[in-house]
Design a protein around this nucleic acid. Structure first.
Length: 581
RNA sequence: CGGGAUGUAGCGCAGCUUGGUAGCGCGCAUGGUUCGGGACCAUGAGGCCGCGAGUUCAAAUCUCGCCAUCCCGACCA
């Protein structure tokens, strides 16, 4: 491809609309342009990258035995009403009406549609198992689209759905997808982790997220330094600490309410305006480990209180699981006030009338500090005997250095971008949509399903987040829009021109993807554009090199330069690309 | 949806406080000189100043309404 003829509008300056690097660089490198909030055009360079990712995805899905289909983007309301998601999905579902007033939506995901397809065709266990996938445009009317292709409203997604006769089969399908995903992201040249994940609203109870590691990632991932364990921070389990002496000494016994000096336990202390753990510990001169934080949650079944040690953070997802109420959220200040009788910052478990859940770590504490459920009052010398706990459990967020739940090693924290998510669904959709089959015994059963998604554009964006420098993108070779960029520094000079043309022809006929910068531009412009668009190998043809009958190779990722004799250029490129594979 | 901000040339911005009909840098076009890390000189094209209403002799500037975009939060592949 000749640059002079290519539609590749690069930008020198950063458009203000772009906040994150991948978005900035995609705009600057002429990959994308914005049409509306969260809706983008893909320019030629962008399309090339997306197609590369898609090709890898397609190959690995096919290899795993999945079959490609294509479902529509406009979906009838009836299917969504059948599973209840027409109402449940909320505003994210973009709804529209046709000329007859019939309701439709733009598909944000396709469980309903495939399930409908499959239930119409599958009668017998003999037709199972199989896996259908598509690479298709989805639309989700996100509350706040941002970060370019990272979180658009319209985006390209590969979604796959597996159909099995039983749970064991479904788990096998799930593992096959896990392997396929691992192969896909590895082949894309990305550093990633498959982490245990919360299966969330889609339901089911077996789920992994594939996270591309990048410091700018929005998701926090914990990963064991010693074993393979990795999990979404929400999921990262923590084993109860070993039983031992309570951290504050021997706790008081039931009914022991008076001190030897005649004072009553727990002891009320004035803490005017001291709301945060930091303020209270400083004021009272104790460490945060001696404090118990009380966090009020509210849900459909009413409020609950959660206790964690002062230096720990509560993990809402764990609270929801332990309390068995999916609707629990951290309560608003007015609810906190109603429940505790005190402004936020002075909540404590003593005398609370709502169920109290406590983190394991609290079980090992004695003579601790809590809020007093009254403005400007805290309690010291509190013990577990002073209040009732509904249940102890793992309720806090993991922190760096915490022990790994699998092997006891230390947990490390990483940041990642979720590019893929796999779920075991069970019979969630097949049940409600009556996608049944007859098993060997002639019994009618719902099909066991799994669903598996990859954000294609997001994968490209994540690749940039992970691989860039201050000059621009550094594409991993497998998803680079071109493998080689060939610069002719003086297209006006005959010798330079003819050598560059010759190398261009040789590379092209060898099947190598090369962008030939034959523009009438100054060298600096060409070097900078080449760095910006991030093609892995740059070849420079210029007078300076030609004096010695050499052209220059430069690797984008490392900056390594070398001189190669003109006549060996094409061959050397092949060697270079072979080495990088 | 709540809080904050911004809309002026393709991009980045100034002008708005104190009304007088628009400017800078980059980019673009033409000519010349340059030519190995975003050149220089000259000339030039390009703007219903987001949209609508109002105040005024006069509005980019003041007032009101609307729209769009961005940021923070809740939400999310």
């Amino acid at each position: 491809m000749r640059y002079s003829k290519y539609f590749l509008p690069t930008l020198r300056e950063v458009p203000t609309e772009a906040e994150v690097v991948s978005h900035q660089l995609m705009l600057r490198s002429g990959m994308i342009r914005r049409v509306a909030a969260g809706i983008y055009e893909l320019l030629p360079l962008g399309v090339r990258v997306i197609r590369k990712v898609e090709a890898i995805v397609r190959e690995e899905m096919d290899r795993a035995g999945a079959m490609e289909i294509l479902m529509p983007t406009v979906l009838p309301a009836e299917l969504w009403q059948e599973t209840g998601r027409w109402d449940f999905y909320g505003k994210e579902l973009l709804r529209l009406k046709d000329r007859n007033g019939r309701e439709f939506c733009l598909g944000p995901t396709h469980e309903e549609v495939v399930t409908d397809l499959v239930r119409r065709e599958v009668r017998s266990y003999r037709q199972l198992p199989f896996n259908l996938y598509q690479i298709q445009t989805k639309f989700r009317d996100e509350i706040r689209p941002r970060f370019g292709l990272m979180r658009g409203r319209e985006f390209t997604m590969k979604d796959a759905y597996s159909f099995d006769a039983d749970r064991a089969g479904a788990e096998k399908s799930y593992r096959a997808m896990h392997e396929a995903y691992t192969a896909i992201f590895r082949r894309c040249g990305l550093k990633f982790r498959a982490v245990e994940a919360d299966s969330g609203k889609i339901g089911g109870n077996l789920s992994h997220e594939f996270m591309v590691l990048a410091d700018t990632g929005e998701d926090r991932v914990v990963s064991c330094l010693e074993c393979e364990y990795a999990a979404n921070l929400e999921m990262a389990a923590l084993a109860p600490p070993p039983k031992g002496a309570p951290s504050g000494g021997i706790p008081r016994k039931e009914g022991e309410k008076e001190s030897s000096e005649g004072g009553r336990y727990p002891i009320e202390v004035k803490t005017p305006g001291m709301r945060t753990v930091e303020e209270v510990t400083k004021f009272l001169g104790v460490s945060a480990r001696r404090l118990v934080k009380t966090i009020v949650f509210n849900g459909d079944r009413g409020p609950v209180a959660v206790l964690v040690r002062g230096d720990h953070e509560v993990n809402p997802a764990k609270v929801r699981r332990l309390a068995e109420d999916d609707t629990l959220e951290i309560a608003d200040p007015d609810i906190v006030e109603r429940v505790t009788g005190a402004p936020v910052g002075f909540a404590g478990p003593v005398g609370l009338a709502i169920p109290v859940f406590a983190d394991h770590a609290v079980a090992g504490m004695s003579h601790f500090v809590t809020g007093g459920n009254a403005a400007d009052i805290h309690l010291t010398e509190v013990d577990l005997v002073d209040f009732e706990v509904e249940a102890f459990g793992d309720l806090r967020e993991a922190a760096p250095g915490d022990p790994c739940p699998k092997c006891g090693g230390k947990l490390d924290f990483l940041r990642g971008i979720e590019v893929g998510h796999i779920f075991y669904l069970g019979t969630k959709y097949s049940g409600s949509m009556k996608a049944h089959f007859l098993d060997e015994a002639g019994a009618e059963k719902p099909i066991e399903m799994g669903c598996y998604g990859i954000g294609v554009g997001r994968t490209a964006a994540a690749a940039i987040e992970q691989n860039h420098d201050d000059k621009g993108i550094i594409w991993p070779l497998p998803i680079a829009p071109f493998q080689v960029i060939l610069l002719s520094l003086d297209p006006g000079k005959k010798d330079v021109h003819s050598v560059a043309e010759k190398i261009y022809r040789d590379l092209t006929s060898a099947g190598i993807e090369v962008l030939f910068d034959d523009r009438e531009e100054r060298p600096g412009v060409k070097f900078n554009d080449a760095d910006l668009i991030g093609i892995p190998l740059r070849i420079t043809v210029g007078e300076r090199g030609l004096k010695e009958k050499m052209v220059e190779f430069r690797e984008r990722a490392t900056g390594c330069e070398s001189k190669v004799p003109v006549e060996r250029a094409a061959e050397a490129v092949k060697e270079f690309l072979g080495k990088m594979e």
